[in-house]
């Protein structure tokens, strides 16, 4: 099964749409609630990252009987230093985004912590591609 979501850059109202839908689907499939909880954290953070930092992108979730694979692709601006972006507390979020309680530099670390595998690739001015997998 593949689910696809468009994520609009800057639109926080829709953040949580993909994670909410994926949570429902996994529940219906009878996946272990502990695993669902971890995936939901990762997907939500990935959505918020695209909303807060990029011009927009797409999220694809592939689910089969043994695992879920999520791929999040955006159209820029890309991450200057991925190692830095992975550091807890480091963020390039705007003042407005921080005032909402986002941009604490916890997003990518939260994703890493809650997934079995995670890879991130980024090219400046082109975009970022993030993939993660959780096994059931």
């Amino acid at each position: 099964m593949e689910l696809k979501f468009d994520i609009v850059g800057g639109d926080f109202n829709l953040a949580g749409r993909a994670s909410s839908k994926i949570k429902k689907v996994l529940k219906q499939l009878g996946i272990d609630p502990k695993i669902i909880k971890r995936i939901v954290v990762a997907v939500y953070e990935a959505e918020v990252n695209v909303v807060a930092h990029s011009v927009g992108g797409r999220l694809f979730a592939q689910i089969n009987s043994s695992e879920i694979n999520v791929r999040v692709v955006d159209d820029g601006p890309g991450i200057t230093n991925i190692e830095q972006a992975m550091t807890v507390g480091f963020s390039t979020a705007s003042k407005e985004v921080r005032e909402m309680g986002f941009g604490a530099g916890m997003g990518l670390p939260n994703i890493k912590k809650n997934t079995d595998e995670m890879t991130i690739e980024s090219e400046l001015e082109k975009g970022t591609s993030l993939s993660f997998t959780n096994r059931f």
């Binding site: 926080f12 909880k37 954290v41 939500y44 953070e45 909402m100 604490a104 912590k113």
Partner: peptide, 27 residues
């Protein structure tokens, strides 16, 4: 901090906050 809640709050807890926007309910 929403990511803190996302990462660390547990099912069935009451969340006390000063954030008033709708992402609070999404979380």
């Amino acid at each position: 901090l929403l990511s803190d809640v996302m990462g660390n709050a547990a099912e069935g807890e009451v969340w006390i906050t000063l954030q008033t926007h709708q992402n609070v309910m999404a979380i």
